[in-house]
């Protein structure tokens, strides 16, 4: 039996499910095991972050024939029930990342996935810094803490291939199409800097509905904005070569 020569990663973000569309997304996942080895969800799985919506998402993802890894997004935090929503998803068999990592076995390949919600702050040269009012310092410090957590998790993850899964964007190229004025609320270069330092093969994010699918970090790591409105399809599939 040969091992896989590539790992096929299905990815999507911003599915924003609620009771009124229950069952609709699940239909789109039928046959996913023929197309992909793992499904990754890049946050904003709900609309308002209610437990009821979280349960709809959990039911849509329950007992899929391939592993599912997810992060939450800002919408999933809105009702301060992010831990409860993550619990519902975990009960349904979904691996939920919260600034940590997991290793998924895909054929003979160990696929490391590191990430979490991420946060904003802006991009190099046009970003907030830890200066001035406490509120601004807290805002930037939150992103910096997340970036450091990802760097540590990447360094600790022993895997053949490594993917970073985020809701917020690490680069501005995949935001093209969004108003420039809101870039600081869509992502932060600190996330890319951390991943470039620790190394990864691919970064997936959502959040920017009007953005662009493809971009690169300054260090040359491929970035894909998989927000559902950007993809226009149930999920994209990215194939990573596994080598010998």
């Amino acid at each position: 039996m040969s091992t896989l020569t590539e790992v096929r990663i299905a990815a999507v973000g911003d599915i924003h499910l609620g009771e009124d569309v229950r069952g609709e997304y699940r239909k789109r996942l039928e046959g996913i095991e023929e197309r992909a080895d793992v499904l990754m969800l890049a946050g904003d799985l709900t609309r308002h972050g209610t437990l009821e919506e979280g349960r709809v998402v959990a039911d849509e993802l329950r007992d899929l024939p391939i592993p599912v890894v997810a992060v939450l997004g800002n919408h999933d935090y809105h009702s301060d029930l992010q831990h409860e929503i993550a619990g519902e998803l975990r009960d349904a068999g979904v691996m939920v990342l919260d600034d940590d990592g997991v290793v998924v076995e895909c054929g003979g390949t160990k696929l490391g996935v590191v990430g979490g919600k991420g946060f904003g702050g802006g991009f190099a040269g046009k970003c907030a810094s830890e200066f001035g009012e406490r509120e601004i310092k807290d805002f930037v410090a939150h992103t910096r803490y997340i970036a450091e957590s990802w760097k540590m998790a990447l360094k600790e993850t022993q895997a053949d291939r490594r993917v970073v899964l985020s809701h917020y964007s690490p680069i501005k190229e995949t935001l093209e199409g969004e108003p420039l004025e809101i870039y600081p609320f869509l992502g932060s270069y600190l996330l890319a800097e951390a991943v470039d330092t620790a190394g990864a093969d691919l970064i997936l994010h959502g959040h920017a509905h009007k953005g662009t699918e493809k971009g690169l970090t300054p260090g040359g790591i491929r970035v894909r904005n998989v927000a559902l409105p950007v993809l226009g399809k149930a999920y994209a599939v990215y194939c990573l070569e596994c080598g010998e």
């Binding site: 590539e6 096929r8 299905a10 609709e24 997304y25 789109r28 197309r35 093969d201 691919l202 491929r222 559902l228 409105p229 226009g232 399809k233 149930a234 999920y235 994209a236 599939v237 990215y238 194939c239 990573l240 070569e241």
Partner: peptide
């Protein structure tokens, strides 16, 4: 949003 079937894979 119209959710279409997944299309072509991208090989990285």
């Amino acid at each position: 949003v119209v959710v279409n079937e997944p299309g072509e894979d991208e090989h990285l």
